[in-house]
Amino acid sequence: MTHGSPPGGGWRAEIDAATALLASAGVASPGADALALAQAVAGIPLGRFRAALITGSLAPAPGELDRLRELAERRARREPLQHILGVAHFRALTLAVGPGVFVPRPETEIVVAAALEAIAPLTDGAVVADLCAGSGAIGFAIADEFPAARVWSVELDRRAFEWTTRNHAALDEGTMRRVTIQRGDARTALAPLNGTVDLVVSNPPYVPPGAIPRDEEVAKHDPAVALYGLGPDGLAVPAGIVAAAERLLKPGGTLVMEHAEVQAEAARGLLDPARWTAVRTRPDLTGRSRMVIGRRTANLSPGASPDETIEESEK
């Protein structure tokens, strides 16, 4: 890099042009995306890059503005920003992502928050199963933020599991030792853990077969295997997750499972009152119903009365 370009020139002008291009293409956050692309090209921390834009103290090196234009054109074609940058930021983690794996979303960070709340009392240790792990975002974040957790992350799809493996290898050594990754079917995986797990957490595929995601980035680039939950309502895979949780969880263990906002009632209905208690829907930060939570009971004898199921979203 060279220094001394005047304020308003160089980077600033090219970021403004990229912002206009992305806005015209319908990108939801054109300014933020243009800045992220420019910062990636410049290769310096975002705070320093922002300061340099204000002072005009950082001139682009040869070819850097051309590179920014190239990346902006890719983003204008609605290629996900995370694919272009090669990373997705999720809670405190930076995860490698790209074609073949679902890009973790901010709303799923609230799933992690609910999971952490469920195991918070277990300071002597918590056994966690993350089913349909994808990039590893949920399970790895739990292990990162709750040092008493021992996490098993399961992913079936071969391409997605390559990303699980890559992100597992990038964890710090202490966290990595507490996370086991496994390629397998969530419905049958982890049989040696049956009845010993404190928390099952999952963001399974749940989109109904006829529904097309609104965002082009999702519809065109997220793998179909990570989106569509099968069955007429998209809940066949989630139902399999519930069945797996029933065998994995110890009595009193918790299931936290993401779903679409229109599936709240149906998702609660997957949890048999004879096997689950305190079943409830929890909203994300925008107030949309986005996850079902339930606590595993001991198997009840015929005629026994389970605890009352909560049928309304938490307020």
Rank of each mutant, 00 (worst) to 15 (best):
G100C: 11
G100T: 12
G100M: 08
V101P: 11
V101F: 09
V101T: 09
F102V: 10
F102K: 02
F102C: 13
F102N: 09
R105E: 01
R105F: 07
R105W: 03
R105Y: 04
P106H: 10
E107W: 10
T108I: 07
T108M: 07
E109A: 12
I110S: 12
I110P: 00
I110G: 01
I110N: 09
V111I: 15
V112P: 06
V112F: 01
V112R: 02
V112Y: 04
A113T: 15
A114L: 15
A115T: 08
L116A: 00
L116S: 09
L116Q: 06
L116I: 00
E117S: 13
E117Y: 06
E117K: 10
E117L: 10
A118T: 01
A118L: 03
A118P: 01
I119T: 02
A120K: 13
A120V: 03
P121D: 12
P121E: 10
P121C: 12
T123W: 08
T123S: 13
D124S: 15
D124Q: 15
V127G: 09
V127E: 15
V127L: 15
D130L: 02
D130A: 03
D130K: 02
L131A: 04
C132W: 02
C132Q: 03
A133K: 01
A133H: 04
A133I: 04
G134R: 08
G134T: 06
G134D: 09
S135K: 01
S135F: 08
G136T: 12
G136Q: 10
A137K: 08
I138Q: 00
I138F: 00
I138N: 00
F140S: 04
